[in-house]
Design a binder for these strands. Structure first.
Ligand SMILES: [Mn+2]
Ligand SMILES: [Mn+2]
Ligand SMILES: [Zn+2]
Ligand SMILES: [Zn+2]
Lengths: 141, 141
DNA sequence: CGCTAATTGCAAGAAATTTGCAATTACAAG
DNA sequence: CTTGTAATTGCAAATTTCTTGCAATTAGCG
């Protein structure tokens, strides 16, 4: 299945960065893999609370960030986390202010071209970027 | 001067939303007006700490958000706050990962056009959006 | 199979944010 | 310009979020 492939990739990522492949890390990763939209830390803590300690979640999320396995997504009040482009493919989000739905969308080359224009204009070297839209989804009109 | 005009606008905004025009709110607003890049809550608390209570800063920032006077900017670790488009004009940010500088840039019509394409493609009605770039500024190469 | 350094859980601590309440103040009605 | 009243403030306390220290456990290597 597909999940196995990403888990494999994750294990290699850990090894490459000299981190141990623990059951807690695998569980946290697989839990994140199962989510269809970014989660707050509290949500993640709740999702795994009977298999691992809150402190361990914090520490492992920090590790995940360090090795580039997760990305912060800034939607809503506090930031949320999701697996990085490496596991999810590069994309952005639209959040519906009415129903709260988060819709992911790919980045078209023409949008990326616009970002490159900005880079050039300011002599900036872009290493990453985030784009978040808020509004109303097609259901909420 | 220019500052007076924005302060005036701010006072009207408060009145329109039935909030009182207190010295604390004016000071907080004027302090934010003086900043050239987004501030964390803690930075704001420090900036006004001998004129108002920490709790009051929290409560007023919440009010400011409610009436649309401030915007959250998600650059770096935690979110920061700046005055909204209403006072600052619409713009986005590039943050330098080396020196930490935050550079603001305007949104070109061609970029906005790209966002409209996304809207149409997904039947989404965009009410606001944020775009943040991270990388290296022209000084940091 | 051991050895060893990394990881974990738990308890404690620090920092950030929220809440309750009495005292103060803005502001509008008279 | 006073006066009445609801909104706002400050302070203390509570809560929530996040971090740290340390002893016990465990992954991964030889
Ligand atoms: Mn993108
Ligand atoms: Mn914009
Ligand atoms: Zn919706
Ligand atoms: Zn720089």
């Amino acid at each position: 299945m597909n999940e196995t492939k990403q888990l494999q990739q994750f294990k290699e990522l850990l090894k490459r960065n000299k981190y141990k492949n623990t059951p807690e890390r695998r569980l946290l990763f697989e839990t994140m893999l199962r989510q269809s939209s970014p989660c707050s830390i509290q949500e993640l803590i709740d999702l795994v609370k009977n298999s691992m300690n809150e402190t361990t979640v914090y520490r492992n999320l920090e590790t995940f960030e360090e090795i580039g396995a997760v990305t912060r997504v800034y939607s809503g009040w506090r930031y949320k986390l999701e697996l990085s482009d490496m596991f999810r493919g590069h994309h952005h989000h639209m959040t519906c202010r009415n129903c709260g739905d988060v819709i992911s969308f790919d980045e078209q080359p023409s949008l990326l071209a616009e970002l490159h224009k900005i880079e050039q204009k300011h002599g900036f070297t872009m290493q990453s970027h985030s784009l978040e839209l808020e509004g109303l989804c097609s259901n909420c009109c």
